[in-house]
Simulated scan of single mutants.
Amino acid sequence: MRLVVVSIGRLKQGPERELADRYRERFGDIGRKLGFRGLDIQEIPESRARDAASRISEEAAAISAAIPEISVLVALDERGDNIDSAGFARHLGRWRDEAVANTIFAIGGADGLSPDLRRRSKLCVAFGSATWPHQMVRVMLLEQIYRAATILAGHPYHRA
């Protein structure tokens, strides 16, 4: 199964990009051994529309265009479920075992994801009840993907 993070906005050079790259590389090492085909990042430019509804709509269209037909969609949204790392790992492991071709993680821009994308998602995840900048959500998601792989591998990185 291939994992793809589709994110509105670009991570510029700096500590966030370095941390995101570190977790992505770590996942690559362990993920291949677990049957994952890769972890890709697709950055989509932020909409320049004047109003929030138009921005959300334009960004949703761009995200939707990046989702292959045979995919599981995971929405990152502040209204999502708070699941623990072991539960997150179980989802990834189950989709891998079911031979899902692609798992797509969608991170919206400053105005969030469209209701349509949230409805289409197989899983909607929040990292707590706080609102996080989408750049930080990407780093936290990549860490959780890496952590899920270590849980599936029985690696000691995750200590419950």
Rank of each mutant, 00 (worst) to 15 (best):
Glu18Ser: 13
Val72Cys: 10
Ser47Leu: 05
Ala53Gly: 09
Ile145Met: 09
Ala110Arg: 10
Val100Phe: 03
Met1Pro: 13
Gly154Ile: 04
Ala66Lys: 14
Arg10Met: 10
Arg159Thr: 11
Leu113Arg: 07
Asp21Val: 00
Val4Pro: 00
Leu113Trp: 09
Arg120Trp: 10
Gln144Arg: 13
Arg94Thr: 14
Asp116Ser: 13
Arg32Leu: 11
Leu76Tyr: 08
Asp97Trp: 04
Glu46Gly: 07
Leu19Ile: 11
Arg2Ile: 00
Gly35Cys: 08
Arg138Met: 09
Leu3Asp: 06
Ala75Gly: 08
Glu43Thr: 03
Ile151Trp: 01
Ser64Thr: 13
Arg79Ser: 13
Arg50Glu: 15
Glu69Lys: 14
Asp21Cys: 02
Asp40Ser: 13
Asp29Met: 01
Glu143Arg: 05
Ala52Asp: 14
Ser114Glu: 06
Arg37Tyr: 11
Ile145Arg: 06
Glu16Ile: 07
Thr103Ser: 09
Phe36Arg: 03
Asp116Leu: 14
Met140Asp: 07
Asp116Thr: 09
Asp40Cys: 01
Asp111Tyr: 15
Gly38Arg: 09
Ile70Gln: 15
Phe27Met: 07
Val125Ile: 15
Gly28Pro: 03
Val4Ile: 13
Leu34Lys: 00
Val139Lys: 00
Leu141Lys: 11
Ala86Asn: 08
Ile107Leu: 06
Asn82Gln: 13
Ile41Glu: 09
Ala106Met: 08
Asp51Tyr: 10
Val137Phe: 04
Phe27Lys: 03
Ile104Ala: 05
Arg120Gln: 15
Asp116Ala: 14
Val72Asn: 05
His134Asp: 11
Asp84Pro: 03
Val125His: 04
Leu92Gln: 06
Tyr23Phe: 15
Leu142Tyr: 12
Arg10Asn: 10
Thr103Lys: 00
Gly108Met: 03
Ala60Asp: 11
Ala153Ile: 04
Ala160Asp: 14
His91Phe: 15
Ile104Leu: 06
Gln135Asp: 14
Pro68Thr: 08
Leu73His: 04
Ala110Ser: 15
Gly28Thr: 10
Ile145Lys: 04
Arg50Val: 07
Arg26Cys: 12
Asp29Ile: 04
Lys33Ala: 12
Ile107Phe: 08
Lys12Val: 00
Ala89Arg: 02
Val125Lys: 01
Ala53Lys: 15
Ser71Glu: 03
Leu142Asp: 10
Leu123Met: 11
Ala148Asn: 01
Ser114Tyr: 07
Asp97Met: 04
Asp77Asn: 08
Arg26Glu: 07
Gln135Ser: 14
Leu92Val: 07
Gly154Ser: 08
Glu46Phe: 03
Phe105Asn: 02
Arg50Trp: 06
Leu11Pro: 01
His134Val: 12
Ala62His: 11
Ile56Leu: 02
Val5Cys: 12
Asp84Thr: 07
Thr131Ser: 12
Leu73Ser: 06
Gly28Ile: 01
Gly109Trp: 03
Gly109Thr: 00
Leu34Ala: 02
Asp51Phe: 11
Leu123Trp: 10
Phe127Ser: 08
Ile104Pro: 05
Val125Cys: 06
Gln144Lys: 10
Gly87Tyr: 04
Ile44Lys: 11
Ala99Ile: 00
Ala110Ile: 09
Arg22Tyr: 12
